[in-house]
């Protein structure tokens, strides 16, 4: 992957908190080295690249450094070392004016506890970024009204944040972050503060919006199910380092470290793994009957797999090529592997 097709990327990014002189930071720097000087690394040597239109979910437990990472990517805090490139420009080298200009045109962000201004109505909150960049009153009100109806808050324009429910407040937050039509959309645990039912509803809403707006997205969450549900790619973080950055399927099927494996063990693989992932080259075997779509999850085609008499089921990829899926392997994923005791 090169920088040319990436919208935002970081290279050897470090964020170290602590007093005085920073130690030298490279891939060999250890936690012990840092602790000796009273330093704590929140982000350690992270390199990531996100393509245009891609959605990267950064997943980690609290204290894993994911929020710090996203703040470095948005330069809400300055990285200690390493570089963040946005569309080929070094974010760290920008002047304050350039940074402000960038945020006014290219970036939007949604926050965990919404970050709404308590003294402004929903409409005024959504119009706030437009007001900052000096847009005239009529056009920003029109745009904000449009954004609010997009997130389903038509008729609540005059409400103040505290008069809205948590889900509604976050809808305002989302509308605000999209008001300037940013290219890059940061979402920092946007649904964590919501109760489970609302969270689900908001995730659906998010997917709907995502399909409409086509942004490059960096999404932070501590909820693995959420990550799997939404992500193109997932970066799993632990102690400031990225343990693995891959597609949900790869993470589930081929965890890179024991930590990731532990994480994925409880996941219902059938909902993650798609038919394409089990598709093998034909290799001269016979291809019989109808082919399945490669992008369907096993869960979606469970009934077919269970009832299909063929041992090898053809799978057609998006480019039209066909491969074969081993039905037994698919059933293993759907039902869990045959255990000797139960077999007996």
């Amino acid at each position: 992957m090169t920088d040319t097709d990436s919208v935002i990327s970081c290279h050897n990014l470090w964020k170290v908190f602590g007093p005085g002189q920073m130690p030298e930071l490279n891939e060999r720097t250890t936690t012990q080295d840092l602790q000796a000087g009273g330093h704590i690394a929140a982000v350690r040597n992270v390199s990531l690249s996100i393509k245009r239109g891609e959605m990267l979910v950064v997943m980690g437990l609290s204290g894993s450094g994911k929020s710090t990472l996203v703040r470095c990517l948005a330069r809400l805090i300055d990285a200690t070392s390493g570089a963040v490139m946005v569309e080929g420009r070094d974010l760290g080298a920008m002047t304050e004016a350039q940074l402000i200009d960038l945020r006014r045109r290219k970036m939007g962000m949604v926050f965990q506890s919404f970050g709404l201004l308590p003294h402004r109505t929903a409409l005024e909150n959504v119009a706030f970024p437009l007001e900052m960049r000096g847009q005239d009153r009529a056009s920003r009100i029109a745009r904000a009204t449009e954004m609010l109806s997009l997130v389903g808050l038509k008729g609540r324009e005059g409400y103040f944040p505290r008069e809205l429910s948590g889900g509604q407040q976050q809808r305002v937050g989302i509308a605000r972050s999209l008001a300037v039509e940013p290219d890059i959309w940061f979402l920092d645990e946007p649904f964590s503060a919501l109760d489970p039912l609302i969270r689900r509803e908001m995730q659906d809403e998010f997917l709907r919006l995502k399909a409409m707006v086509a942004k490059t997205i960096v999404f932070i969450t501590h909820d693995f199910d959420e990550a799997i549900r939404l992500a193109d790619r997932i970066a799993i973080m632990k102690d400031g380092m990225v343990e693995q950055c891959d597609t949900p399927e790869r993470i589930v099927m081929a965890p890179a470290t024991p930590y990731v494996a532990k994480f994925t063990s409880a996941v219902d693989r059938s909902r993650v793994v798609r038919a394409g992932a089990l598709s093998r080259p034909v290799n001269g075997r016979s291809v019989e009957g109808d082919a399945l779509a490669a992008n369907a999850t096993l869960h979606q085609i469970a009934r077919i797999i269970a009832c299909d008499p063929r041992d090898f089921i053809p799978v057609r990829a998006a480019d039209g090529s066909v491969g074969l899926m081993d039905r037994a392997e698919a059933l293993d994923i759907l039902l869990g592997p045959d255990l000797p005791e139960t077999a007996a």
């Binding site: 939007g108 308590p118 402004r120 706030f128 007001e131 960049r133």
Partner: peptide, 29 residues
Amino acid sequence: VPPEIIESGKMSGATRWQLMTRVRLPAAR
């Protein structure tokens, strides 16, 4: 003032002055 409110102001592209007069002071109302 909650840090997220300030960050949301920054991400909205507020200059220091705008951040002070339209975010921090009103939020500290």
